[in-house]
Every structure is written in C-alpha cells, then in structure tokens.
Design a protein around this nucleic acid. Sequence first.
DNA 1: CTCTATTCCGTAAACGTTTACGACGATACC
DNA 2: GGTATCGTCGTAAACGTTTACGGAATAGAG
Lengths: 343, 343
Amino acid sequence: MGIKELARHLNISIGTVSRALNGHPEVNAETRKRVLEAAAELGYAPDQAGRSLRQGTLNVVALLLSTDLTSKTDTMFFMELSRGIQDQFAEHGLDLVIHLNKPDLDMLDRVKRIVERRQADALILAETRDNDPRLDYLAGRGFPFATMGRSWSGGTHPWMDLDFDFAMRAAIDRLAGFGHRRVALVTGDPGYRLDSMLQDAFRRELAGHGLVVDEALMIKTDTHEEGGYKAMTDFLAMPEPPTAVIFPHYRAVVGAYSYLSESGRQPGRDVAILSCSADTAIAQFMAPPLTCFRLDLYGLGRRLAQALLASMPRFAESYGNALIQEIWPWELVGRDSDGFHVN
Amino acid sequence: MGIKELARHLNISIGTVSRALNGHPEVNAETRKRVLEAAAELGYAPDQAGRSLRQGTLNVVALLLSTDLTSKTDTMFFMELSRGIQDQFAEHGLDLVIHLNKPDLDMLDRVKRIVERRQADALILAETRDNDPRLDYLAGRGFPFATMGRSWSGGTHPWMDLDFDFAMRAAIDRLAGFGHRRVALVTGDPGYRLDSMLQDAFRRELAGHGLVVDEALMIKTDTHEEGGYKAMTDFLAMPEPPTAVIFPHYRAVVGAYSYLSESGRQPGRDVAILSCSADTAIAQFMAPPLTCFRLDLYGLGRRLAQALLASMPRFAESYGNALIQEIWPWELVGRDSDGFHVN
DNA sequence: CTCTATTCCGTAAACGTTTACGACGATACC
DNA sequence: GGTATCGTCGTAAACGTTTACGGAATAGAG
C-alpha cells in the first residue's frame, strides 16, 4: 500500500509513480493512465506524513474555537462560517480542522503547539482578545493566520469583520424613529474586541442622535440565555427602565424574551428588542420574530479563507498577493420584536 | 529548530535528545534536565510529520460532522459532546480535530481519505445511516472508530447511545397521565438510525398504553425550525388534531412554538409539547419552558472517547481491553410546555 | 551519419524523527 | 585482576514521500 508496492506492481520506478500522481508534465500519458488506474484499484493514497515531511506542507488549515465561545455565543454562527471556510479551502485540496480549546491561557499554548509541531499550514482565530498574545506570537514566527474580527491594532494580518458602526446606526435610527429615547445595550466582556467595538459604536451613535448616554443602561454580562435574562430583569427593576434594548448576541435575546414572558410583558409591545446578531434560522421563528441583521455567513467564511490563502506564499499569486482586510455590510431586517411606537 | 540543532547546541547526540524528550528511562537525570530546559528555551517541539512518519502514529483523532447535521439539528449538542471527547483525549496527549463534511456520498470519500492518508489515528462518527458504508469500510480496514448512536446491526465497534425506549415510555406515561390520547411524533429522516429508533419506540409505547397508533400523526420532516413549523401547521389543520406532540429534535420545537404563537395558541395550554432532546441551556428559557430530558452531554463525550480508546491497541490495556457499548439513561425534567390536563 | 534537442524515466538524497544495536566506562562480584 | 552487569550514550537505519540530477532512447536537423 506504499508507493513502493504500487511501483513494483507496475514495474515502474517510484519516482515515475510519484510524478504521475502529482501531475508532473514529464511523464508519458499512457504511463500516467496506468498509474492512476492502478492507484484507484489498489486504493493507494499518498501517506500524509511522508509527503508533508518531504515538502514541508501539510494541506491542513486549523480553525481555533474556544469552548468559551461555543458555550456562550451562537454556535450556528461558527458552523455556517466554518462551512464557507471549508468549501473555499477544498478547492485547493486543503482540509479544515477545528480545534476546540479551553479559553484564555491555554489558547497560546495550543497555538504554539500547532505552529512548532507543524500541525497545520495556517491558522484561523475565531475571535481576538485585548492584547492578544497569540497575534504577536504568530506574526513573530511569520506563520500565516487570519482572524474573524479585526484586532485592536488593526494589524497586518488578514481578517474579515462586520460593519458595527453601520449596524449600530441603523439600529438606533430605527429605534429613534419609533420614538425611543432610553435605549440600552447588553454586551459581553469588553475584553473581546467585538464587544468593545459595539460599546464604542453605541455611545457614538446615541450621541449622534442627541440621546443621552446612560452608563447604567450598558450592561456587560454573559452572552448566553442566562445573561440576557438577568440583564432584562435588572433593566425592568430600574426606576426608569429603558424602552428599547439592543442585544448584539442572539442567545441573550432568548433569555430576555423569557423574562418578559414570565413577567407578563411582551417583546415588541412593552419593550423593544433588537439584535445585531446574524439572522440565523431561529430569529424568524421566535415569538415575536426578532429584528436583526441579514448576513451571508457562508460567503463571509469563504472570503475569510480567501484572505488567508492570499497571505500564504503557496497560493498568494492566485489571489493577487494582497493583504485582505474587509468590513462586511449587513442589512437590517425589521420584524416585530421592536416594532412599536413609544408615546 | 530541528532536533539536530538542539542536539548540536547541547553537544549531545540526537538519539539522546530524543530519548530525553520522550521520557525513556535510559538517560541520565542531569542530561534530561538540560535537554528539557534547552528545548523550552529554544522553543523546540518535535515535528509532527517526522514523528508520525517514523512511528506510524499521529496523536490525532478525527470527529466527522456532516453539515447536514450542523444545519438541521442542535449544534449545541455536538459542541458539548466534543468538549467531553476532547478533554478525555487530552489526558493521553491526543488532539481532537473536527472535520466538517457535506452529507451523504462525500462522507465515504472523506473517511477513505482520512484512513488511507493516515490523517488520524482513529475516527468518531457523529451519526450513522441505514446501511452505512463507512462502517463496513472502517471495520474492513481494521481502523479504530466509534459512533455516537448505535448502528443498525449493533456492530462490533464501540458506541454510546441514549435510552430512547425509556425516554419514549417516560414521555408517553406523562402525556397519558395528563389524559392525552392523540399523541403525535415529529422525527427526521428515518434513514438515520436515531429517527428510526424513535419511531419504533413511539409505536411500541403507544400500543403499550392502549393508545391507537395513527400513522398520520407521525410526521417525518426536517428537524430544524421550519420543519417544526410546518409539522405543527399540518397537525392543527387536521379534522381531529393531536392534543400532544413529541418533538425529539429540539430545534423543531422552536418552529412549533412559533406557529402556535402566530395562530393565537399557546404551548402547554392548547397543545402539549414535549421534547426528547437533551436539556441544553435554551430549553428552560423558552416561553413556556420546555419539557425535555436531562443528560450529561459532557460526560457522554468523555465516555465515548474512553470507548474508542479501549479499542485502540495503544491504549486498550488502560481501559480493560473491552468492547464498550453503552446506553445512557436520562431523566425527564417536566416543565410547562406540556403541563395541562386534557378534558 | 553525426550532433543536438527532446522525452521519458530511474537513482538516490533529503525531510525530522525514533529506536535497535553496539560501545564505552564504571561498578560489582568472585 | 578478570569478568559480568549496569547505566549512559552515540551511530545509523528506517518510516514514505518528493525531486534534483543524470542517463537512455528517440526524434530532428544538418
């Protein structure tokens, strides 16, 4: 089942077999056909270890996901993203493998392991933290990588990100149009670049609309159901509660809906709920359907993969040797969770 | 950065360095300390390709997920499962990598690629299909693998599964106790072993409770939101609708809730909804909170990994050389989605 | 017919490890 | 003091590929 066996079976040298399989031009068409047929028949496929040892490449790209992310945020987001990434890589014969990891400290070790042991040719980080040491490490080693979401410094590595300024403006435009003046925001740990940007954009757009920025209306909490539940509880216990709440993280909305329902209130009637998250399948099936943002997650994944490929020497020329950093637009899709006029 | 460089830097032979790093006993304690320190300082880690070429092992286990699964079923389920699997493997220095794949036909090719190119030491399949060719292939090659969910033939490979008979009995006990006599079931494609078993158990338990089995009340559809929405629509359009519906797949419940809400009905008052899915975070935050089954997904993942390890020659002895196939219990946690008495 | 160019293929080195084997010195034993 | 044992280490082969190099055969040009 090795290449030697295959060569012996064909009475050809292993060099020729290798060349035939890898599509080198200096091999007779007839010979190539024989080799390919025999390989298919005997079920031969080149051993990954041998090949990668020889040519220093693995044909594997790793996507790093923290279990923090998968337990506290929308897993569907990453699934769709991964699907796009994978399809793009597949066109170049690259496999995507997903590494789950405990959050925080271990992440750097895992990255180091992947790089030093050459477990992948390139890396994708699903999120970036404040002063993320992984970025410095990777850049220092010259290891190809890309991130979902820009980093704090912007950086010289490829990334894809979303236009949060636009989203926040559209959201507050809409809410202000309904007459809301006390608008709240529920984000996660501002140590994540994403949440930090959301908060900044929120403050800016609020001010831009002449609305007062009340820090008490900006709650930082866990971005899953329970966080949303508690945030809504806190809001409604205030002497002067907000009339509209923006939940960038979709899963927190579920908790918020839950508390509203429990307390006899109704989203879209008693409190306006609006989410800046991607419009995954579940949003339109909530009761009432959730106002959020439409986004081509699959395409985003593909593009992120392209950005990474453009930074890998092997593939750079196919992608114009450019550093690709893009901010993606999305489109507000208004539904019933916030559609009411405050009086 | 290779082992040669490290050895030269220490004035030791590469053989000794390798032995020191791998914890072989025939190396001086002082020498080992020097080697380990130098390795840490210079950031040396053995190249995976070289090592795996030499010793034929990769220290990688692959988990195969189909995008069909991730787009139509509960992704949280697999995330929690993966976390358990990964933690268990980590104790043996094995990495878990997740391979996303298009469903159906390509899956066999992907499996073949993984095996033939030696991209992993073992494999975990997240689901099994009717007459699944992957199982025969893997068994034929003697490649270590395990499955989540038993296969049709039971098989001689390790697996973990859930006690659907128990779940169905508990569910129908409860519903019958509330006085329900027309109970419906919404499953996915019975080509999946899981859905097939659910249907069988449903028929059996219904009969066991003296209730009539009406095939019209057994809908097979997509197991995501839209499928649930449509199923509920169909049910309520019947001349004699069911008074209770069992949704083994959690995401379908969201769709069902949605239609009920739209049509002015309420789960737990007009129709009883009960899910056989695992009790992920979202269930208790639905409105009304969903009756479903409590399950230790993380522990299940760990145990599945143990079962696989027990079938791998390298680790078998640590796990008693046994074939591990287990059916896991779960516990019904009653909430408000089905808590009413039919009159 | 000779010389050169071309086409195709075989040979062998190299990638970075691990490990079987043997060697060396030191210690222990009679 | 000779011999066996032990602890420690160096040497070199092997894993399965890819590829630079060179050689043989054929074709083409003069």
